[in-house]
Nucleic acid binder design. Structure first.
Length: 803
DNA sequence: AGCACGCCGACT
DNA sequence: GTCGGCGTGCTC
């Protein structure tokens, strides 16, 4: 008889990062299952936990407490996800509880409340004043009326006690539905008794005569189909003509939207070969990882769609990951159009309620295809048949907060567990993945032709240094201006990319060179045209533009950098007749903005689409024949060994937006480093050339994929404490690690202070793990005390961004 | 994370 | 002599 539950509790610290044993009370023996959330006593409190195992014998040798209650009717985590969470916690140096919370929709994170309740027989007057005749008072209310010290005192005197509440935030949306509860003969009778003026009721009775007896109809259906108003329905219920029930409904993030059914297209030879290779693994339930490298416009999506179609035909499920910004309605349309209601969509713009409902659809097996961003890799699907990661090189697949997992690794883990293939798709694979394909760890599949047989667009590089010398100080070279003019005249469309990566607009005093910095972070503040204010991108601090230089009292400021707004006004000046749509964080802040702007551009409401990175993806409009990159090289100067790779990927990506139909596309790239290899190879659409050269450089300087990397960051409000700690860690690492391990640093982070915390870091480069894992875990274990004092140590395996 | 326990400085 | 500061350790 099993009666001991092992529970991972909601206390995210190193000391409690292990399951605790609890007795299962007799009343709950049949109701508790592995993977459920439960409320348990922990010390004097009540908290939430996850049952990770149910066993016969406890490991703990003390007296066990009992589980208080289950928080779910069914397990929310499958056995697979429980195991994954445990392994992931170990690999990315995270807490197990954090991993489990990350796998679930946010509503499942417990909310805790405390309240004081009156013990029997204490009716003293002063007590009554506080409790106001009730027998409980919430902690917050006590705080509000400043009765907290008094109540804590009463607790000592056993007059009141504290109750800890675990609240669930999950709310199921309900809708009232109506069913008729009256026979045809009764309807006749009622009709005869109605007064002549009761026209609405008469109309309703006629409707009731016509509809099916078992049908449940909503208020909206009565209104839209029969023109019956809610008030009439209410009368009908009062008179007993109809009964009501509250039925569970899903919040539909795509409601009122129609998706035209699409059919599978005939695959070309390359697509067919790729499809077949993956299908074989699906058929034989074998794990494998494929790297599908296809030039922009080569029809990767159609291959994905048909593979998923095959998986569904075999009664399995599919996970389809896309980068957050590519999760546009255009993309969703393709999947909804092919698979309809089988598709669940998951991304950060859904409300918490919508996320919860999409999650439940997946859990219940009602949606067997999940299209989503990073975290949807944890979808509770069973019988997984394929995992596809589109744009696999994108760094958004790496979570930058804890747990710092990479969706690609999780995908491979889950596919192994489910004996199914993974497809990593990209026009510009990450060097890591491409190198793995080279070593036959992954299988390389290539699509070298564009699906429409269209040639790759012609890419021309403009040397902006020359423009500068010939006294053109603007952002647009003469040639780009001519081309834009030409497109406007021909009624074709232009896309302009402003590369904002590693870039900000700041103000500087012309007299003394003072740069306006954030008071909390050691970084210059960004000037925002729309609010005419300064804003810190790291902590959100805002202030007006200073009138006078705080240092020398001068009042001449120079505005550096190029914001999209500034470029837009320059563009409008150059082309007064052009209709321009600007797309950046400022114009896409509200839900649906993104979609609205794209749809407008797609309809031809504008001649020019000007935007940041977010326009580089998924844009597929036939009338775009010119793509201009205003500043190709800002991303080259990032203090990051991947800066060339990122630049190459961005240029290739955005070039692919041109010439996707019968019209020939053209790309203009403006640069101050026109001879840089990343730009040259992007010009010639030569991924392989770039790959070889970049690999040689990485080899030379000892970076991934030749070495693995792990970054350790220490932060504290006190600069000295953080610095001491990082040197301590450094000494320990150098002492314990040997062989080919290299440690870079320690050093101040490139943003040395953020939100008043000081950051120090070091980077470990290694070929074999050896004992690194053990040493890092030791460091983390020992960090417990520091943590309590506000000194944080963070370990990031394979970081994708370096600060 | 909370919370209790416990050991030293400033007060009625 | 006591109140309360927060350093330390525990939670099945």
């Amino acid at each position: 008889m099993k009666q001991i539950a092992k529970v991972v509790v909601d206390v995210p610290v190193m000391q409690t990062n292990q399951p605790y044993d609890y007795a299962i009370p007799p009343t709950l023996i049949d109701r508790l299952q592995v993977g459920m959330r439960v409320e348990v006593p922990f010390g004097p409190r009540h908290i939430q936990g996850f049952i990770v195992a149910i066993v016969n014998e406890p490991d703990f040798e003390g007296e066990l407490k009992e589980i208080i209650r289950p928080l779910d009717l069914e397990p929310v985590l499958t056995k697979e996800l429980l195991q994954l969470g445990e392994d992931m916690a170990d690999q990315v140096y995270a807490y197990r509880i954090h991993c489990y919370q990350t796998m679930l929709p946010p509503v499942m994170k417990a909310k805790y409340e405390k309240e004081f309740y009156l013990l029997d027989g204490h009716q003293a007057e002063d007590v009554q004043i506080v409790f106001q005749g009730e027998d409980v008072i919430s902690w917050d209310r006590a705080l509000e009326i400043e009765a907290l010290p008094q109540l804590l005192e009463w607790k000592k005197q056993n007059i009141v006690d504290i109750r800890y509440l675990v609240k669930s935030k999950a709310r199921v949306k309900k809708k009232t539905v109506y069913q008729k509860n009256i026979s045809p003969s009764e309807i006749e009778e009622e009709m005869n008794q109605l007064s002549k003026q009761a026209k609405s009721q008469r109309a309703l009775l006629e409707v009731l005569m016509a509809i099916e007896p078992e049908a449940w109809l909503t208020r909206e259906q009565f209104r839209e189909q029969f023109d019956i108003m809610p008030r009439t329905l209410q009368i009908a219920v009062e008179k007993g003509w109809m009964i009501t029930e509250d039925k569970e409904v899903y919040r539909d993030p795509l409601k009122n939207r129609h998706f035209a059914q699409t059919e599978a297209k005939v695959l070309n030879e390359g697509q067919q070969i790729a499809y077949q290779a993956v299908k074989e693994k699906i058929d034989s339930n074998q794990h494998d990882v494929f790297l599908l490298k296809g030039v922009t416009g080569s029809g990767k999506t159609e291959v994905y769609l048909q593979l998923i179609g095959e998986v569904l035909a075999q009664n399995k499920t599919a996970l389809m990951l896309v980068p957050e910004i590519a999760l546009t309605p255009q993309m969703v349309h393709q999947f909804k159009g092919r698979f309809g209601g089988e598709v669940a969509v998951m991304h950060s713009r859904l409300s918490t309620g919508e996320k919860y409902d999409e999650w439940r659809k997946i859990k219940r097996g009602e949606a067997r295809v999940v299209v989503g961003a990073r975290s949807s890799i944890f979808s509770p699907v069973e019988n997984l048949g394929i995992v596809i990661i589109d744009e696999e090189h994108e760094t958004t697949y790496k979570q930058e907060e804890n747990p710092k997992y990479h969706a690609r690794n999780v995908a491979i883990y889950r596919a192994k567990y489910n004996h199914c293939p993974v497809v990593l798709g990209s026009a510009t694979p990450s060097l890591e993945s491409r190198a793995r394909a080279q070593k036959n760890v992954f299988h390389l599949l290539e699509l070298t032709e564009r699906a429409n047989q269209q040639a790759m667009p012609d890419v021309r590089i403009i040397d902006m240094r020359e423009e500068f010398q010939s006294n053109n100080r603007g952002n647009f070279s003469q040639i780009l201006q001519d081309k834009i003019r030409d497109r406007i005249d021909k009624k074709e469309q232009t896309v302009l990319l402003l590369n904002k990566r590693g870039y900000s607009s700041f103000i500087m005093c012309r007299d003394c060179g003072y740069v306006h910095e954030c008071p909390n972070c050691d970084i210059s503040m960004t000037f925002h045209m729309d609010t005419k204010g300064m804003k810190c991108h790291y902590c959100g601090h805002e202030e007006p533009v200073p009138n006078r230089c705080p240092k020398c009292q001068g009042n001449q400021f120079r505005y550096y950098g190029t914001g999209t707004q500034k470029v837009e006004s320059e563009l409008q000046e150059l082309f007064p007749d052009a209709r321009i749509i600007r797309m950046d964080v400022d114009t896409t802040r509200k839900k649906g903005d993104h979609e609205r702007l794209l749809a407008a551009f797609g309809r031809g409401d504008a001649d020019i689409l000007l935007g940041t990175q977010m326009i580089a993806k998924g844009l597929d409009f036939p009338n775009i024949t010119l793509v201009g990159v205003i500043n190709a090289d800002t991303s080259l100067s990032l203090p990051d060994f991947r800066s060339s790779e990122k630049t190459f990927q961005l240029l290739t990506q955005v070039s692919g937006r041109a010439g996707r139909s019968d019209l020939v596309g053209e790309v203009i790239v403006q640069s101050f480093n026109p001879d840089h290899y990343a730009i040259r190879y992007a010009q010639n659409h030569n991924y392989d050339g770039f790959y070889r050269q970049e690999m040689a450089l990485r080899h030379q300087s000892g970076y991934p994929p030749y070495y693995f990397t792990t970054q350790i960051t220490v932060s504290d409000l006190d600069e000295k404490k953080a610095q001491t700690k990082i040197y301590e860690i450094n000494a320990k690492l150098r002492n314990k690690l040997e062989g080919q391990t290299i440690i870079l640093g320690p050093s101040r982070s490139s943003i040395a202070r953020m939100n008043n915390r000081y950051y120090f870091q070091l980077l470990i480069k290694y070929k074999q793990k050896e004992n690194l894992h053990e040493v890092l875990k030791e460091i983390l274990d020992a960090s417990q005390k520091d943590n309590a004092k506000g000194l944080y140590i963070s370990i990031d395996t394979e970081p994708v961004n370096f600060f």
